[in-house]
């Protein structure tokens, strides 16, 4: 079971809009960390993903385990938010 979902985004990132669109279509709620508004949280996004890119989607499960999806990747995002 998914406990919460956080997406790291920027203002100009089109793939971030696609992740939100996909989660909306699956009636999932999520928090957004906009790195243009919060550049101090870039290091956190990097530490979680190992990547200098957005979107980074962090799916936290009920047992506090985490799944991190880099980019707009439906093959990874779809299974991450189910189960």
């Amino acid at each position: 079971m998914v406990k919460n979902i956080t997406i790291f985004t920027t203002n100009t990132c089109a793939y971030c809009a696609m992740v939100k669109r996909y989660l909306d279509s699956k009636q999932r709620t999520y928090d957004v960390v906009n790195l243009d508004d919060h550049p101090e949280r870039q290091a956190e996004a990097l530490a979680l993903s190992g990547a200098l890119t957005v979107p980074i989607t962090v799916v936290t499960k009920e047992d506090d385990s985490r799944q991190v999806v880099i980019g707009y990747n439906l093959a990874k995002l779809a299974p991450a938010i189910t189960g």
């Binding site: 920027t10 089109a14 793939y15 790195l35 550049p39 890119t53 957005v54």
Partner: peptide, 14 residues
């Protein structure tokens, strides 16, 4: 995606 990029509007902010 860790230093080599193809999308400025996605990754420029880093």
């Amino acid at each position: 995606a860790r230093g080599v990029h193809y999308c400025a509007t996605c990754d420029g902010a880093f």
